[in-house]
Design a protein around this nucleic acid. Structure first.
Lengths: 132, 132
DNA sequence: TATTTGTATTACTCTACATAATACAAGTAA
DNA sequence: TTACTTGTATTATGTAGAGTAATACAAATA
């Protein structure tokens, strides 16, 4: 999968990497059960420090999106458990986004249309022959 | 309006203040045409530095949510202009939020229900006798 | 046994955040 | 005019996070 980082922006690299992996799973570029590159390999591939990759992987592990096993490496997990924390995070971010959109004149119908398209574009899939 | 800040968290104070003001407009606590407290007053009210308030106000001004006039102070603007930048920001954040939600097992229908409730809760209103 | 893995530690530089103390021009109100 | 308030700007300081770099180590693999 191709990782695009914006080192000029203010968003931390480990956050960008974490988000790109999440989006990669959503698009189907990364499949459930598929292994991620090792922290050293990923660091070399995208030209950043190993510890920065570790930080992103650790967050993804804590969020339940991947599991890390020394024997099998990092793997994409099936549907992650929805915790109260994560639920609150999603709701508060969504509320802010909807308020901003509305203040900017985006109609409810248009917003829903955008959401529908994004949902339809999702392609969460499993790796061929994967035993989940 | 009541401003709640979480100084323990990692979100910068000026970002929290900016978000709270946006949400305040959306809820109707702050009405279009209404004046915001001066930077010095706001700083004193919520117990932070004047420059931190200035930072939040400047962002809101650049985003088109308020206008600052030395003669009239800071005022909430009517519907802000939707720029390409802001449109892209909303779309990318929404895409990430939808992907995360879906990976966490939140169904499309449930997501739409949340959105609908949030839209219905909005109460963007004008100040009484305000000449916009 | 040699290698790879995730993880941990320490040290260092750089930047952002927040506060503090002033200062000043523009506008307001006495 | 004078005194005050306003938004804005500057400089300095302390703290914390981000990112890199160089190692180190136990667990697992080949």
């Amino acid at each position: 999968m191709i990782i695009k980082l914006n080192t000029a922006g203010s968003t931390p690299i480990y956050v960008q990497l974490r988000n790109q992996i999440v989006m990669g799973i959503g698009r189907g570029d990364l499949k459930i059960g598929q292994g991620l590159p090792t922290v050293r390999q990923m660091a070399e591939d995208i030209g950043i420090n190993m510890m920065t990759v570790t930080k992103a992987y650790t967050i993804l592990k804590n969020e339940g999106f991947i599991e890390i096993d020394r024997r099998h490496g990092a793997k994409i997990k099936p549907t992650a458990l929805l915790t109260d924390n994560f639920s609150e995070k999603i709701e508060s971010e969504l509320a802010l986004l909807i308020t901003e959109s509305s203040l900017k004149g985006i109609e409810k119908e248009h917003f829903f249309k955008m959401c529908a398209e994004m949902f339809d574009r999702l392609n969460i899939s499993q790796v061929a022959g994967g035993n989940i």
